[in-house]
């Protein structure tokens, strides 16, 4: 939990409790902002609602800016943050499969769970589909293993890989994000309205 536990402001045992509280809050906000609706989520692919793009882009940019300010002020050591390891082709192919599932079902795994929580039947079907997929993957793991563990690049970030200046990179990303927000807003106004 951010700068609080490593700096011993609150004890380590609070980790799981805080995680549950954040999870509940996250699910509540997802649901209340309409993210349990597959029509809203799928809107980003059809051009009538870009809330998904805006939310995730804003989250990434806000978190990056916040983390770098905290690193600058010495509350967080960026070098100690966990970086997800990169398996290049596994990531690309898995991302493509995830995208197809996202378009066809209108959920990502997290939002599907919030939709299950409010009793949506399509979300329940979607979760069952995830379970089947997990089962197939686990049973046929030896087939997928070379892809799953291949093209390993280590725990790298974009900044590490390209040797870029992180501050300029974040600034550029922010500008791109804001431009994307306005461009998608223009697209949204031109596309036929869908009521959902």
């Amino acid at each position: 939990m951010g700068p609080l536990i490593p700096n011993e402001i609150i004890p380590y045992e609070w980790n799981n409790i805080i995680a549950i509280l954040i999870g509940i809050a996250f699910g509540f906000v997802l649901e209340s902002s309409g993210f349990s609706s597959s029509r809203k989520l799928a809107g980003v692919f059809y051009g009538y609602d870009f809330a998904v793009l805006k939310v995730f882009f804003t989250a990434a940019v806000t978190a990056a800016i916040g983390l770098y300010y905290m690193d600058y002020l010495g509350y967080v050591n960026l070098g100690e943050l966990y970086v997800q390891p990169t398996y290049l082709w596994g990531g690309i192919i898995g991302g493509a499969i995830m995208g197809v599932g996202f378009i066809s079902a209108g959920f990502c795994p997290g939002t599907a769970l919030t939709a299950v929580a409010i009793g949506k039947i399509d979300a329940i079907v979607y979760i069952v589909g995830i379970m089947i997929g997990v089962f197939i993957f686990a049973e046929a793991y030896s087939i997928f293993q070379p892809l799953y563990e291949g093209s390993y690049l280590g725990n790298i970030t974009v900044v590490d890989y390209f040797g870029a200046n992180p501050y300029w990179f974040i600034f550029g990303l922010t500008v791109v994000a804001v431009l994307a927000f306005f461009v998608t807003d223009i697209i949204r106004r031109r596309v036929k309205k869908v009521f959902y």
């Binding site: 501050y167 600034f171 922010t174 804001v178």
Partner: peptide
């Protein structure tokens, strides 16, 4: 129907200023 509402404009400006602050610090 308004493309740029003041609220959006303010938030966009805020986030760009914050990111620019990182560069200029």
């Amino acid at each position: 129907n308004k493309l740029i509402t003041p609220r959006y404009l303010f938030l966009s400006a805020l986030i760009i200023v914050l990111a620019g602050g990182l560069v200029l610090l």
